[in-house]
């Protein structure tokens, strides 16, 4: 048992939650493991709405992971975790869990629920985005509603592929490249009966693309449902450089390392709190260049002004940004 797996006290985010035991750890892909959690004293766990997530404590931190089951009277909770080498440490801690370890978790939280009046669920997932969508597919099968899934993953890097195939049969379309995916997506968005709702989970840019295309094809907002990963699972992004005008120094931000971390490594103290693009604490003034906004704090209008950025998650559209630092 590792110290990260059994924290001394529960983090506020998991207070009032559950202490569960790891009953199985299985490798999905090179970088994704599935972890099964159960009540150490046996018995069923609280049911949850499909698409829900669990907040799991690791050491002093917490991370949210989608539950992959249908949610109906579960005897165990299953999550799948993508290892993010340069993340805050949550995914690395999850990957170190072993059978018998105990973890503090929140009760399941629903933020990506299926629409009860839908007669068909069109699910679109990229990469680790498969996790909540798999929950939807399972719940739909349980409840006798139909669902279909477009699943985009790199060859050899797809989690839960066998389960998706078994669950959905011909209703599963697997894509490994962008062109193929675009064709399938356009075809499916243009051929859905009126009871269909769309559910998307994947990297932000991927979801934006899918939702944008749906809107262009006449899908109203009420039919569109998406689950942001939060910063925990943001993609690595492209490398870029920052020019700190007042300090007179230039720094390189590599792929997979945040601007905030880069600045901290260079000895800068940047006020910050959530490091997930939610709290707005690490706001920086941008003098030149267009940030690639990946936070959930700034409004669309503020983002369009390109004068402020959240350095914990946001990166750059341009090769270089000039910052008022």
């Amino acid at each position: 048992m590792t110290t990260t797996a059994l924290p001394i006290s529960a983090h506020p985010a998991v207070e009032g939650g559950l202490q569960l035991e790891v009953t199985s750890v299985s490798v999905q892909t090179e970088s994704i493991v599935s972890i099964i959690l159960a009540n150490p004293s046996g018995g069923t766990l609280p049911s949850y709405v499909p698409g829900s997530h669990l907040v799991v404590q690791y050491g002093d931190g917490v991370n949210a992971y989608s539950l992959t089951g249908s949610g109906n009277a579960p005897s165990e909770y299953a999550i799948s975790v993508l290892r993010v080498e340069d993340g805050a440490g949550g995914s690395m801690a999850m990957h170190q869990l072993a059978v018998g370890d105990r973890v503090y978790v929140s009760r399941p939280r629903s933020a990506f629920a299926p629409v009860s009046t839908a007669t068909h669920h069109l699910l679109v997932a990229a990469g680790i985005g498969i996790t909540p969508v798999l929950s939807h597919a399972r719940a739909a099968a349980d409840r006798g509603t139909t669902s279909s899934l477009i699943y985009v993953y790199r060859p050899g890097a797809g989690a839960h592929v066998d389960e998706a195939r078994e669950l959905l049969g011909p209703a599963l379309t697997e894509c490994s490249n962008r062109t193929g995916f675009q064709e399938v997506l356009t075809e499916q968005l243009a051929s859905q009966n009126l009871g269909t709702h769309l559910y998307v989970c994947g990297p932000g840019a991927f979801m934006d693309g899918v939702l944008g295309q749906a809107r262009e094809l006449g899908w109203p907002e009420a039919r569109l449902h998406s689950e942001a990963f939060g910063a925990a699972e943001l993609d690595e992004g492209e490398p870029f450089s920052v020019n700190l005008v007042r300090s007179g120094i230039k720094l390189e931000v590599p792929a997979g390392v945040s601007l905030l971390e880069t600045l901290e490594n260079a000895g800068k103290t940047i006020p910050n709190m959530c490091r997930k693009g939610i709290c707005g604490e690490c706001s920086l003034s941008v003098l030149r260049g267009a940030p690639q906004h990946r936070d959930l704090y700034l409004t669309d209008e503020e983002k369009a002004e390109n004068t402020t950025m959240m350095c914990c998650v946001s990166r750059s559209e341009d090769p270089e940004l000039e910052l008022d630092l």
């Binding site: 243009a190 009126l194 899908w219």
Partner: peptide, 9 residues
């Protein structure tokens, strides 16, 4: 409506 698809008004 039964033979229409999502996008119809």
């Amino acid at each position: 409506l039964g033979c229409s698809h999502v996008g119809v008004r």
